[in-house]
Amino acid sequence: MNDLNKDRPLSPHLQVYKWQMSSLLSITHRLTSVINTAGISVICFWIIALYLGEDCYKYFSFFISSAVGKFILVGFTWSFCYHLLNGIRHLFWDIGYGYELKTANLSGIFVLVSSFLLTLGLWVLS
């Protein structure tokens, strides 16, 4: 019991929240942070494969050009876009803007829609 008391309290686990825009976006921000960790790791392996030479890289490029590889890359792109846009939203909160309920909801919808549009735009234009 004593040991238990020394620990700081945990955040309430996700099941206890009522689903709403703000919580959904907040959870997605954390979810994308974990996906981005995987994404940036893959990018590291991509660069290491480049250094190891063309023979090693061809396996990577084969995977990237497959349908599964494309799907994963597009997924990572969306995850990065979302985290970037919602991160900017968080930074505005940190300097004290955008807390009004209406503004927060609107900026949330804007972030969500823009993350998909940005992903689409990046892949269409490249």
Binding site: S61, C81, L84, S126
Partner: peptide
């Protein structure tokens, strides 16, 4: 965490704008 986030905003925009084209190019 905030300082690195602010620095990452332009860096990630740069990275995303070049990476997707780059990854589809030859070795």
């Amino acid at each position: 965490q905030r300082i690195t986030a602010v620095i990452l905003v332009p860096l990630l925009i740069w990275f995303l704008s070049v990476f997707i084209g780059l990854v589809q190019k030859d070795f």
